[in-house]
Nucleic acid binder design. Structure first.
Lengths: 218, 218
DNA sequence: CCTCAAATTTGAACGTGTTCAAGAAAAGTA
DNA sequence: TACTTTTCTTGAACACGTTCAAATTTGAGG
């Protein structure tokens, strides 16, 4: 029964994500999704345990889109600066269609108890996939990143990516160009500033951030 | 009729905040608040337009508590580092009773459309009061902060305070000691790093953050 | 083809935040 | 005091996310 079942699942996810884009998160009620998909409310819940789970689905699809775009863009970027810039910009590209829904998305995702929280166990798959993009960006860079940082850098950059996302949600400039400018301006500073991590105090702070980020995942 | 009216308002706010502390945000339903206060649901809504507005009330009270504690602690702190540290620690002290409720609080507050959003117009009073604490911390510091930064520094530090709050929400270490350590570690770095703002690139990034933060307030 | 257990689907029901027409109480006016 | 206006209070009602017992459909084994 996997075929029909998977069809229904895809139908619900497809309808929901389209409605998220077109009419926003609040107006996309579970009843509206069910009606649009031609099924009952309870049936939608058979496939997605909560409305948050549909956000999780969105998170997965956006992340897959990001991975595809990043892989393409990283082909002709060798130094860390341009690789990082390409990674962040393609990430913004992938999120773009959902910008109007960003506030609700982040409100859902930031709650520590939410399955959608990018630090939580329920998001392990999506987070690891997202982290892999940064691992690739850092790992294949020439010249290579400083040895001392190499293992933690992808994770730190991923945290920066989360911060950029937060900035992006609040950015109402046309096409979120302000976030683009922030990325363009901040990336060279970050890559040039990597040497700062050698300062003992800075390193300790970074360690704190990393271990907190890890401990949240429980 | 201002007296009785104000009494009722205080009653609702008091009951709500106590219930937030004692049983958490989700279990503190509007019906439960009304029942506990001995009034009708609609009457609670006469004084607070939404449950979020009660969170706003909490924000105001926490901020007042912060102001009081900071004023006391800043009495015997002269250099910027210790003044900043005192300001951040007293902020954490004021929030402490509500830590278990932090996730819900931040999920409410981070939504750009929420009246509780610390960047939004509805929070102007609370935000300005909070900013004033940082203005005092910076303004009376000896030796004084670099001229170039003096006008923007309180706002930047307030943004750091928001970031620390975010960290604190996710911090489940005993008594949130990890956040305390973060503050102790990060503050000297920040004060020592102030000279970095002279680097043109860094200055531009900071400007971007500030103007975004300002533009959100509409 | 028939049987039956598992997978899928239904729709009514619950508790939630919120709204609102209606009424009660207080304050203002004479 | 008697009337009017404003402020305050009520409780039923709405749409929402979510749950669940029951009904239906499906596929495997005979």
């Amino acid at each position: 029964m996997t075929v029909k079942s998977e069809q229904t699942r895809q139908l619900v996810a497809g309808v929901a994500l389209r409605m998220f884009r077109e009419i926003g998160f609040a107006k996309t009620t579970m009843r509206a999704i069910a009606a649009e998909a031609g099924i009952s409310v309870g049936n939608a819940y058979y496939y997605f345990a909560s409305k948050d789970d549909l956000v999780q689905e969105l998170y997965l699809q956006v992340q897959a889109e990001h991975a595809a775009r990043a892989a393409e863009a990283l082909k002709d970027a060798t130094d860390l600066t341009s690789r990082l810039r390409a990674t962040l910009h393609t990430g913004l590209d992938a999120m773009a269609p959902y910008h109007r829904f960003g506030g609700d998305f982040i409100a859902t995702a930031i709650r520590p108890t939410s399955p959608v929280n990018p630090f939580a166990a329920g998001s392990t798959a999506a987070r690891e996939a997202s982290l892999d993009i940064f691992r690739t960006a850092v790992g294949a860079a020439k010249p290579p990143a400083p040895k001392k940082l190499r293992s933690d850098l992808p994770e730190l950059l991923w945290l920066c990516y989360m911060a950029v996302t937060l900035f992006w949600v609040y950015d109402n400039s046309e096409g979120q160009q302000r976030t683009r400018r922030l990325v363009d301006g901040a990336v060279p500073l970050v890559t040039r500033g990597l040497s700062l991590a050698r300062i003992p105090g800075v390193g300790k702070i970074l360690d704190d951030f990393l271990s907190l980020s890890r401990s949240i995942r429980g």
